[in-house]
Design a binder for these strands. Structure first.
Lengths: 100, 100
DNA sequence: TTGGCATATCGGGAAAAGTCGATATAAATT
DNA sequence: AATTTATATCGACTTTTCCCGATATGCCAA
């Protein structure tokens, strides 16, 4: 993954907020039946509601974050759940500490 | 400083390279008379040559990085020298580790 | 197998970023 | 004071990003 793409993914207020929300899902989203936050994450619809932006925009933002390895997704039935990708975030932190 | 602006500053190949070059100036730039790398940094002209982009573009890129607190400048005579801003970079690393 | 949700993808218009050459400013030199 | 050198700023053009509504796709339920 290109480093520039990682920083581009983070260059947007809403996308940064999404990552922040996903760090503490219990605090930021209502309970989800049949899908626990830790294992699968939060479904697109909840993130969209919280953001106030359109469905298509949030779907796109989530895939930008995913392409940058900052989040990962799981499909369960008709829902797609997204959660933080700890490895990707750790890698980013290392880039900053060792290359910049 | 807005977090988004920090990531925008890093969302460009050349600007990322500049930060990398400034991390090890002795390796990336020729000796400078009357200005040591550690204290004042590297002058704009050298960075411009290394980048291959136009003078105006590099001047602008340096001020974008400076506005994001990632580098700082010192004027000495007719030259402006830029160096990494360690505090800004540390703050960035903390943002990633605690907020994302 | 049709209808209804949840999500993804597409097409587009407006705003921002990338990059340049030309010009301005500021300092040093003659 | 005029010239040269280093850097900053301006105006313009092109490319990318933001964000939407419309449409497609995938999955489930009746």
């Amino acid at each position: 993954m290109d480093q520039v793409e990682i920083f581009k993914a983070l260059s947007n207020k809403t996308r940064l907020q999404i990552l922040g929300w996903l760090k503490e899902p219990e605090l930021n989203f209502p309970e989800q039946p049949n899908a626990d936050f830790e294992n699968v994450g939060v479904c697109v619809g909840q993130i969209q509601i919280k953001s106030g932006l359109s469905q298509s925009t949030i779907s796109e933002y989530l895939s930008i974050l995913q392409r940058a390895d900052l989040i990962s997704s799981t499909r369960l039935g008709q829902w797609t759940y997204y959660k933080r990708n700890k490895e990707g975030l750790k890698k980013l932190s290392e880039i900053i500490n060792t290359e910049l």
